[in-house]
């Protein structure tokens, strides 16, 4: 009985972590699908998003939830600026050059965060919350909000990808870049929108992660590995797979603490990623998106 309660309790944490990882992994997957490179600065984009949200609250004294749209807008713009100034120039090079460059961009972003906010730990306002007791389970209100916020963001993204002309063009480019060009889809404009969305989703992950714990300059870097694990498990280049991948990795990381020290959580993510790469190199799903 006790173990069942414990398992359910950890599953709740897993879903919360999974929600956060999903938002990061969708961006990684979309960027890979369209630009064919692994964006290593994505973790630091998550951090930048969280701090941008925090900065907006500090400047305006707005209620907490404004951090989400503010951070998303900020990181979206920053992502586009990075692409236009750096990645665009090396777009036609080998993917590994883009990958290494993105690693450098990540370091730069992290350093900027430290320069502006210092190495201190910040928290979003709100303080310690009293959990709701549901049966034997303790549910922290913020966890419910994190899940709902991620759900809304993912739903909106789904509607965008399936109902709008630009969203469909993003899927088309990810499917077949050469044909997209022949068809007359304006590639550079779609790439820009991909970065806007990728940045916004990263910031969503960042603000929600900051709400769940605290803000540090390495918060995004620290979850980059699980984010990539989620994207890869779901089949990199497939945003819908990233949702399942995020949830799987999130649940596995939290439930593993039943048997393992919590500091092994990233190792669990890595282990699942390696296992999936060996058994099903294209991810756990069939099909393209």
């Amino acid at each position: 009985m006790y173990i069942l309660v414990e398992l359910l309790q950890l599953s709740i944490y897993g879903i919360v972590l999974g929600s956060i990882l999903t938002l990061g992994a969708i961006g990684v997957s979309m960027i890979f699908g369209i630009l064919r490179f692994a964006h290593f600065a994505h973790g630091d984009l998550i951090t930048v998003g969280a701090y941008t949200g925090l900065g907006f609250l500090m400047m305006t004294n707005a209620p907490f939830w404004f951090a989400l749209p503010a951070g998303m807008a900020g990181a979206a713009i920053i992502a586009v600026l990075i692409d236009q100034t750096v990645y665009k120039r090396i777009r036609r090079r080998q993917p590994v050059i883009l990958l290494i460059s993105s690693f450098g961009i990540g370091l730069i972003l992290r350093s900027f965060v430290q320069i502006i906010w210092g190495p201190h730990v910040f928290s979003f306002p709100g303080g310690i919350q009293r959990p709701w007791l549901v049966w034997e389970l303790a549910i922290i209100p913020n966890h419910v909000w994190i899940f709902l916020a991620a759900l809304i963001i993912v739903t909106l993204l789904h509607l965008f990808l399936t109902r709008t002309r630009v969203g469909k063009a993003m899927r088309a480019m990810s499917d077949n870049m050469d044909l997209a060009l022949i068809t007359g889809i304006p590639a550079e404009r779609i790439i820009m929108i991909t970065w806007l969305l990728g940045g916004a989703l990263a910031a969503g992950a960042g603000v929600l992660l900051g709400l769940d714990s605290r803000l540090t300059p390495t918060m995004g870097w620290n979850i980059l590995l699980p984010v990539f694990a989620a994207a890869i498990v779901g089949g990199i280049g497939r945003p819908y797979g990233a949702i399942a991948g995020g949830m799987l990795i999130g649940l596995a990381m939290e439930i593993s603490t039943l048997f393992l020290e919590p500091s092994y959580k990233p190792a669990v993510a890595f282990l699942i990623m390696v296992a999936v790469l060996i058994a099903r190199p294209h991810g756990i799903f069939k099909g393209a998106w």
Binding site: K168, R171, A172, D175, N176, L179, A288, W289
Partner: peptide, 12 residues
Amino acid sequence: FPSLTVQENLEM
């Protein structure tokens, strides 16, 4: 575009 529906292919 294999993952798009027939109509989406045409729309593209």
